[in-house]
């Protein structure tokens, strides 16, 4: 904030600041670390406790146990999540960029009114729409199908807003040049604007990935059979199936669920932060 003149307090303040950020980093990271360490403790006997932090033998076999349990098919959950997230992300990239482009670049009757409608829909609490959504999806016969998990997520007002904000920043001259060359709106969108929108698409992609991959409420309601559960709901079944006691296995399962998101986040965090700057929103 303020440029400190080097005085005798300067070093003391700097060291104090550094200590603070490191303590907060430890506070943030400690639960993850403890999760990882606890997952390597023996899965029988009393629960791991910080006073005996490190296990005598590292039980990597906990992970094999988790991955091969019959009652909670972990690999199946993983594939379900992968399939659902893949289609949701692809559809959102397409539908949100189309609509975002329409709102940012094209002029048509009722455009501003429609945009406000999309924005306002973000304010509606999920609890209001989820009960009718459930009844609707049930009446389609979609419960316990991929349709129920994918279709309600294929477009999002947030994604449209994000893409619109990006397309607004592109210079108009490009459109005009392409139009003179005989391109129609769709061709300009696909051949001129979309290639330029790669950073924004990456941002939307990672937001959509994280929110779909970690979604819990809707998959919990839309599926009842074990085979159709996603990873997030599957993990909650783990807790129930161990009667809340087998902490090393619970933590091993948690690590397995967290790993893909954390890897994606570390690879793509640049885009996530860009997105926040672009929209002033978190996902």
């Amino acid at each position: 904030m303020k440029q400190h003149k080097p005085n005798r307090f300067y070093w003391i303040i700097s060291i104090f600041k550094l200590l603070m950020v490191l303590v907060i980093a430890l506070f943030t990271f400690a639960p993850f670390l403890w999760m990882l360490i606890a997952s390597l403790h023996p899965s029988h006997g009393s629960p791991p406790t910080p006073s005996h932090l490190m296990p005598k033998v590292w039980h990597w076999d906990n992970y094999r146990t988790v991955l091969t349990m019959d009652s909670v098919p972990f690999v199946r959950f993983f594939l379900n999540s992968l399939l659902v997230t893949f289609f949701v992300v692809i559809c959102q990239l397409l539908l949100c960029s189309l609509a975002g482009y329409g709102f940012a670049r094209l002029s048509f009757p009722g455009r501003d009114w429609l945009f406000v409608l999309f924005l306002a829909s973000m304010m509606i609490p999920g609890q209001v729409t989820v009960i009718p959504l459930f009844l609707l999806v049930r009446s389609f016969g979609w419960l316990n199908t991929y349709w129920a998990l994918i279709v309600p997520g294929i477009s999002s007002a947030f994604g449209i807003f994000l893409m619109r904000q990006f397309f607004m920043t592109l210079p108009k001259d490009l459109d005009d040049a392409a139009r003179i060359d005989g391109c129609n709106d769709l061709a300009i969108y696909w051949r001129v604007s979309m290639p330029l929108a790669r950073p924004a698409l990456a941002t939307l992609g990672i937001f959509a990935f994280i929110s779909t991959w970690t979604d819990f409420f809707w998959p919990l309601l839309a599926t009842t059979t074990t085979n159709m559960r996603t990873l997030e709901v599957g993990l909650s079944l783990f807790k129930d199936s161990f009667g809340n006691t087998n902490w090393p296995l619970q933590m091993a399962a948690s690590v397995l669920v967290l790993l893909p998101v954390i890897i994606i986040f570390l690879l793509a965090q640049r885009y996530l932060i860009q997105g926040i700057a672009l929209t002033g929103l978190k996902g």
């Binding site: 970690t214 399962a253 967290l258 986040f265």
Partner: peptide
């Protein structure tokens, strides 16, 4: 990035830990 980590993590896993 470290401070942001909890926000992208699975809420179920977070709740369990």
């Amino acid at each position: 990035a470290i401070y942001y980590l909890p926000a992208v993590s699975s809420t179920v896993a977070i709740s369990m830990v």
